[in-house]
Amino acid sequence: MTIKPSGEGLSALTWVKSSYSTNDGPECVEVAHTPGTVLVRDSKRPAGARLAVTPDAWSGFLAHAAA
């Protein structure tokens, strides 16, 4: 699912940058949590689309990425 930047309440989100991202690096990912949803965006395009996943799907992704 993709969330459009104009979605209600998205401006109040607290975005956290990946600890693997650097300020000068080309690959920056940010994550924000809402009740029942985890949003992921490209920090270089904060007004762009966001990927929305369930907390369970996000946990599964993190477990797979850490393996």
Rank of each mutant, 00 (worst) to 15 (best):
2 T>D: 13
2 T>R: 14
2 T>L: 15
3 I>A: 13
5 P>L: 11
6 S>T: 13
6 S>L: 11
6 S>P: 03
7 G>H: 13
7 G>Q: 14
8 E>M: 13
8 E>N: 13
11 S>E: 15
11 S>A: 15
11 S>F: 04
12 A>R: 14
14 T>K: 04
14 T>S: 13
16 V>Q: 15
16 V>M: 14
16 V>W: 07
17 K>L: 08
18 S>N: 07
19 S>H: 09
21 S>V: 00
22 T>Q: 10
23 N>L: 05
24 D>Y: 06
25 G>L: 12
26 P>H: 08
26 P>F: 07
29 V>F: 02
29 V>M: 06
30 E>T: 01
30 E>N: 02
33 H>D: 14
33 H>Y: 09
34 T>F: 01
36 G>N: 10
37 T>G: 06
37 T>C: 11
37 T>H: 11
37 T>F: 06
38 V>P: 07
38 V>C: 05
38 V>M: 12
41 R>M: 08
41 R>A: 09
42 D>F: 04
42 D>L: 05
42 D>V: 01
43 S>R: 11
43 S>Y: 04
43 S>H: 10
43 S>A: 15
44 K>H: 15
45 R>K: 11
45 R>V: 02
45 R>I: 06
46 P>A: 02
47 A>L: 11
48 G>C: 05
48 G>Q: 03
50 R>A: 12
50 R>I: 02
52 A>C: 05
53 V>W: 07
53 V>G: 01
54 T>V: 00
55 P>Q: 09
56 D>Q: 06
57 A>D: 15
58 W>V: 00
58 W>Q: 02
58 W>R: 02
60 G>A: 05
60 G>F: 00
62 L>I: 07
62 L>R: 09
62 L>K: 11
63 A>G: 06
63 A>R: 02
63 A>C: 02
64 H>K: 08
64 H>A: 14
66 A>Y: 01
66 A>Q: 14
66 A>T: 10
